[in-house]
């Protein structure tokens, strides 16, 4: 185990801002021991290794991007190589929601509800121009200008629609993101922080627009344009 139990939480966070597990001498020690045929790992590595290789997406498609998503899971592109072959028909069993296609304002509350129903840890891939920004329908009265207005998105894929390789690339990016998560420390992910929300408010249908038009907390956290407000 890499953690010295005599150290306090703040001491574990080294002065370099590194999580203790990332400290170079530990990596060097592991490599050194490997040379003598001793395999060592950390609970964190084991935990993340298991999680990143069994990310089960939700059976959920919205538009033409969904066709590319389906193609990605089929024999030619074979998403099963990355442990994501089991598309779950219930959000209760899913780890990942791939928002694949145009999100209409009428559909947006339902997506947020599906996301809320997924157990932690859960991830979101926004696939295609529409899901990340509204795409060519951005000026339409009925299209949400990006799903990141309501739920936190982990990986954005541009493209109209993105090719299966792009989705695979996004999936690998997500796996890397999962592998880099720490189970302790201040930088641990949301699902390991007791006071962080795992559900986000479902917008209501208003007289002119969705109510509210965006979840400002979620949206501002990831939006570089927030400074204008």
């Amino acid at each position: 185990m890499s953690h010295d139990p005599t150290l306090s939480e703040s001491e574990r966070q080294s002065s370099h801002g590194l999580n203790p597990i990332d400290q170079p001498h530990l990596t060097a020690l592991k490599t050194e021991l490997n040379k003598y045929g001793i395999f060592t790992t950390t609970l964190e590595d084991l935990y993340n290794w298991g999680r990143k290789n069994s990310v089960w997406p939700l059976t959920f498609g919205l538009a033409c991007c969904a066709i590319e998503m389906i193609a990605t899971t089929m024999a030619r592109y074979d998403l099963a190589r990355f442990g994501a072959e089991v598309f779950r028909p219930s959000p209760r069993q899913a780890d990942l929601i791939i928002v694949s296609g145009t999100v209409t304002k009428k559909m947006a509350p339902l997506i947020v509800r599906l996301y809320d129903q997924m157990p932690e840890p859960k991830y979101v891939i926004a696939m295609g121009a529409c899901a990340i920004s509204g795409g060519p329908f951005r000026d339409g009265y009925n299209v949400l200008k990006g799903i990141d207005r309501y739920i936190p998105v982990d990986v954005h894929i541009p493209g109209c629609p993105p090719r299966p390789e792009a989705l695979i690339s996004a999936f690998i990016t997500l796996q890397e993101k999962i592998a880099a998560q720490h189970i302790t420390g201040e930088d641990r992910p949301r699902h390991l922080k007791a006071n962080e929300p795992s559900e986000f408010p479902v917008p209501g249908y208003g007289a002119h627009d969705l109510d509210p038009p965006s979840n400002t907390i979620v949206f501002a956290a990831n939006n570089p344009l927030k400074v204008i407000q």
């Binding site: 304002k105 009428k106 000026d139 009265y141 009925n142 209501g204 249908y205 208003g206 007289a207 002119h208 627009d209 038009p213």
Partner: peptide, 16 residues
């Protein structure tokens, strides 16, 4: 949706 009160294809419709 049913709560919607505008008619978006009218020429004087102003989107939010």
């Amino acid at each position: 949706w049913e709560e919607f009160t505008d008619h978006p294809m009218r020429k004087d419709y102003v989107p939010p």
